[in-house]
Amino acid sequence: NTKMVRFKKGDSVGLRLAGGNDVGIFVAGIQEGTSAEQEGLQEGDQILKVNTQDFRGLVREDAVLYLLEIPKGEMVTILAQSRADVYRDILACGR
């Protein structure tokens, strides 16, 4: 149940992230009207890879910085997997 989305970065990627470290990086929110939303990313999706950067094992701050450093107008390719069950557990633990 993995999906790959590809879009051109606007002012931002339009994602709020949660998790990090051993639990993985998850989409915690999506800005309305962004390409990330239009391409089908959803809250609870685990981000496995962005462009050439493996997101598994990253701390959340490093994942956020990586997304911020992608220049506006560059193509962004995100490999994600729907993991809403794991995401709910992360929220319940306050991570």
Rank of each mutant, 00 (worst) to 15 (best):
Asn1Tyr: 13
Asn1Thr: 08
Thr2Lys: 13
Thr2Trp: 07
Thr2Tyr: 15
Thr2Asp: 09
Thr2Ala: 01
Thr2Met: 14
Thr2Phe: 15
Lys3Ser: 00
Lys3Cys: 03
Lys3Ala: 00
Met4Cys: 12
Met4Tyr: 11
Met4Gln: 11
Met4Trp: 07
Val5Cys: 07
Val5Ile: 14
Val5Asp: 05
Arg6Gly: 00
Arg6Gln: 11
Arg6Lys: 13
Arg6Glu: 08
Phe7Leu: 04
Phe7Met: 03
Phe7His: 00
Lys8Trp: 08
Lys8Ile: 14
Lys8Asn: 07
Lys9Pro: 02
Lys9Leu: 02
Lys9His: 01
Lys9Val: 01
Gly10Tyr: 06
Gly10His: 04
Gly10Gln: 07
Gly10Ala: 08
Asp11Lys: 07
Asp11Trp: 01
Asp11Phe: 00
Ser12Ala: 08
Ser12Pro: 04
Ser12Met: 08
Val13His: 05
Val13Ser: 08
Val13Glu: 08
Val13Met: 13
Gly14Arg: 02
Gly14Met: 08
Gly14Val: 04
Leu15Gly: 02
Leu15Trp: 07
Leu15Thr: 07
Leu15Asn: 14
Leu15Asp: 02
Arg16His: 11
Arg16Val: 12
Arg16Cys: 10
Arg16Tyr: 11
Arg16Ile: 13
Ala18Ser: 09
Ala18Tyr: 09
Ala18Phe: 12
Ala18Arg: 08
Ala18Trp: 13
Gly19Glu: 09
Gly19Asp: 04
Gly20Trp: 05
Gly20Asn: 13
Gly20Gln: 07
Gly20Lys: 05
Asn21Arg: 15
Asn21Cys: 14
Asp22Glu: 12
Asp22Cys: 08
Asp22Tyr: 09
Asp22Gly: 10
Asp22Trp: 04
Asp22Ser: 07
Val23Leu: 11
Val23Glu: 11
Gly24His: 10
Gly24Gln: 05
Gly24Ser: 02
Ile25Thr: 02
Ile25Trp: 05
Phe26Ser: 02
Phe26Trp: 10
Phe26Asn: 06
Phe26Ile: 12
Phe26Cys: 03
Phe26Thr: 09
Val27Cys: 07
Ala28Arg: 07
Ala28Ile: 10
Gly29Arg: 06
Gly29Thr: 06
Ile30Gln: 09
Ile30Lys: 02
Gln31Phe: 00
Gln31Arg: 10
Gln31Tyr: 06
Gln31Ile: 11
Gln31Pro: 10
Gln31Glu: 15
Glu32Gly: 12
Glu32Asp: 11
Glu32Met: 06
Glu32Asn: 10
Gly33Val: 02
Gly33Asp: 05
Gly33Phe: 00
Gly33Asn: 10
Thr34Arg: 04
Thr34Asn: 10
Ser35Ile: 14
Ser35Cys: 12
Ser35Trp: 10
Ser35Ala: 15
Ala36Glu: 13
Ala36Phe: 15
Ala36Val: 10
Ala36Asp: 03
Ala36Lys: 05
Ala36Gln: 06
Glu37Lys: 10
Glu37Val: 08
Gln38Met: 14
Gln38Ser: 12
Gln38Leu: 15
Gln38Arg: 13
Gln38Asn: 12
Glu39Ala: 15
Glu39Asp: 09
Glu39Ile: 15
Glu39Ser: 15
Glu39Pro: 02
Glu39Gly: 15
Gly40Phe: 10
Gly40Ser: 03
Gly40Tyr: 00
Gly40Glu: 02
Gly40Ile: 11
Gly40Met: 05
Leu41Thr: 02
Leu41Met: 09
Leu41Asn: 04
Gln42Ser: 11
Gln42Gly: 00
Gln42Val: 09
Gln42Asn: 05
Gln42Ile: 09
Glu43Phe: 09
Glu43Asn: 00
Glu43Lys: 08
Glu43Met: 07
Glu43Asp: 06
Glu43Trp: 09
Gly44Leu: 03
Gly44Tyr: 01
Asp45Asn: 03
Asp45Trp: 06
Asp45Ser: 02
Asp45His: 02
Asp45Tyr: 03
Gln46Gly: 04
Ile47Asp: 00
Ile47Arg: 04
Ile47Cys: 01
Ile47Phe: 10
Ile47Leu: 07
Leu48Gly: 00
Leu48Phe: 03
Leu48Asn: 00
Leu48Gln: 01
Leu48Lys: 02
Leu48Thr: 04
Leu48Ile: 11
Leu48Arg: 02
Lys49Trp: 12
Val50Asn: 05
Val50Cys: 03
Val50Asp: 09
Val50His: 01
Asn51Ile: 01
Asn51Cys: 00
Asn51Met: 05
Asn51Leu: 00
Asn51Trp: 00
Asn51Lys: 03
Thr52Trp: 02
Thr52Ala: 12
Thr52Asn: 15
Thr52Glu: 15
Gln53Val: 12
Gln53Asn: 03
Gln53Met: 13
Gln53Arg: 12
Asp54Asn: 05
Asp54Tyr: 07
Asp54Pro: 05
Asp54Arg: 04
Asp54Thr: 07
Phe55Trp: 08
Arg56Gln: 09
Arg56Tyr: 07
Arg56Glu: 10
Arg56Asp: 05
Arg56Asn: 11
Gly57Gln: 11
Gly57Ala: 07
Gly57Arg: 08
Gly57Phe: 05
Gly57Glu: 09
Leu58Ser: 03
Leu58Asp: 04
Leu58Glu: 06
Leu58Arg: 03
Val59Ser: 15
Val59Tyr: 11
Val59Thr: 15
Arg60Val: 15
Glu61Ala: 07
Glu61Met: 05
Glu61Gln: 09
Glu61Arg: 08
Ala63Pro: 03
Ala63Tyr: 00
Ala63Lys: 08
Ala63Ile: 06
Val64Ile: 14
Val64Leu: 14
Val64Pro: 02
Val64Ala: 13
Leu65Thr: 15
Leu65Val: 08
Leu65Asp: 15
Leu65Gln: 15
Tyr66Cys: 08
Tyr66Arg: 07
Tyr66Val: 06
Tyr66Ile: 06
Leu67Cys: 04
Leu67Ala: 04
Leu67Trp: 04
Leu67Gly: 02
Leu67Arg: 07
Leu67Met: 09
Leu67Ser: 04
Leu67Pro: 01
Leu68Ile: 12
Glu69Phe: 01
Glu69Asp: 12
Glu69Thr: 12
Glu69Asn: 15
Glu69Ile: 07
Glu69Cys: 07
Glu69Gln: 14
Ile70Met: 00
Ile70Phe: 06
Ile70Cys: 00
Ile70Pro: 00
Pro71Met: 04
Pro71Gly: 00
Pro71Ile: 05
Pro71Asn: 03
Pro71Val: 00
Pro71Tyr: 08
Pro71Ala: 04
Lys72Glu: 09
Lys72Gln: 11
Lys72Met: 07
Lys72Ser: 03
Gly73Pro: 00
Gly73Arg: 01
Gly73Lys: 04
Gly73Ile: 02
Gly73Asp: 02
Glu74Lys: 08
Glu74Gln: 12
Met75Arg: 05
Met75Gln: 09
Met75Gly: 05
Met75Ser: 08
Met75Glu: 14
Met75Pro: 07
Met75Ile: 09
Val76Ala: 06
Val76Gln: 01
Val76Tyr: 06
Thr77Glu: 13
Thr77Ala: 04
Thr77Lys: 02
Ile78Asn: 11
Ile78Asp: 06
Ile78Lys: 07
Ile78Gly: 03
Leu79Gly: 03
Leu79Ile: 14
Leu79Lys: 05
Leu79Ala: 04
Ala80His: 05
Ala80Asn: 02
Ala80Glu: 06
Ala80Pro: 04
Ala80Trp: 01
Ala80Arg: 02
Gln81Glu: 11
Gln81His: 04
Gln81Asp: 08
Ser82Glu: 13
Ser82Leu: 03
Arg83Gly: 06
Arg83Glu: 08
Arg83Ile: 02
Ala84Ile: 14
Ala84Gly: 13
Ala84Leu: 15
Asp85Lys: 10
Asp85Asn: 12
Asp85Met: 11
Asp85Thr: 11
Asp85Phe: 06
Val86Phe: 08
Val86Asn: 11
Val86His: 14
Val86Asp: 13
Tyr87Lys: 11
Tyr87Thr: 11
Tyr87Ser: 10
Tyr87Val: 06
Tyr87Trp: 13
Arg88Phe: 09
Arg88Glu: 13
Arg88Pro: 12
Arg88Ile: 03
Arg88Met: 10
Arg88Cys: 09
Asp89Ile: 00
Asp89Thr: 11
Ile90Gly: 11
Ile90Ser: 13
Leu91Lys: 14
Leu91Ser: 12
Leu91Gly: 12
Ala92Ile: 09
Ala92Thr: 13
Cys93Glu: 15
Cys93Lys: 14
Cys93Pro: 14
Cys93Phe: 14
Gly94Gln: 14
Gly94Glu: 15
Gly94Arg: 12
Gly94Asn: 15
Gly94Met: 07
Gly94His: 12
Gly94Ile: 00
Gly94Tyr: 02
Arg95Ile: 08
Arg95Cys: 15
